[in-house]
Amino acid sequence: MPEPSFIFGQFVGGLTASMFLFVTAVGLSLIFGVLRVLNFAHGSLYMLGAYLAWQIMNWLGPGPEHFWLAALGSAVVVAGIGAAIERLLFRHLYGREELYQLLFTYALVLVLADVCKIVWGTQQLSVSRPLSLSGGTTIFGTLVPHYNLFIIVLGPALALALWLLLHRSPAGRIIRAAVLDREMLGALGANVGWIYTGMFALGAFLAGLGGALVTPVKTIVPGMDVEVIVEVFIIVVIGGLGSMWGTFLGAVVFGQVLAFGILLMPRFSIFSVFALMAIILIVRPWGLLGRRLTR
């Protein structure tokens, strides 16, 4: 039996990974929930967020807390890019077959990957963690970096904020109406077009934020777009596409299965995640907390 401090370390490690991914995954889930488009390019927006965070850091110059400006700034810019993509391109996809949506968003993945390569090259880029969170605290014998603690708190806070937005605000009522019946909502005079743009921008914001927040613990490299989209897909499939709390649960399950899978099957921990996804797709295709699709 491993030491308790070690088990705790694994748990915290898994939770950190979960919450990093949740930020990005919930964006994908929200976009799907409202727009009914599975955006393959969501990982590309995440990558854009990471590169932009580095870029803004570079413009700002050295400064212990510039990271926060960079992270927020990059997420806002990615939201703007998302809004533009929705208005100019996605607009034409609604109501088309899924295959076209898939092909289109995949094309977007390739285009954005090349854009990043042209602008930032192929070199590895890295961002330092903000000075205020550069330390660590020992909890139950395990050193937990403050930045990781921040992410662990941010995840649930973000989930709560999104829940309040969707369920306790006037805007949320309209958004939920758009999920249920977009035609009826349009007939009632709401501008469904702008609701869609807003939701896509919000989803893009979360993707960009996820990408920016991850830069202090990861390398910014070409290919991080595809890497993250796979993980994020697993999470939303496990939790249920379009379900916010499902995505949260999916992220937590993903992180813990991975962290403890390493203990049980050191070389096959990634397999356990895929196996879990396969089982859920067979037994409960709409995910743990998702709703059966009706159309």
Partner: peptide, 12 residues
């Protein structure tokens, strides 16, 4: 993408 669990396991 996430080496933390491996790092913890090794330090253990």
């Amino acid at each position: 993408a996430d080496y933390t669990p491996f790092i913890n396991a090794q330090m253990g």
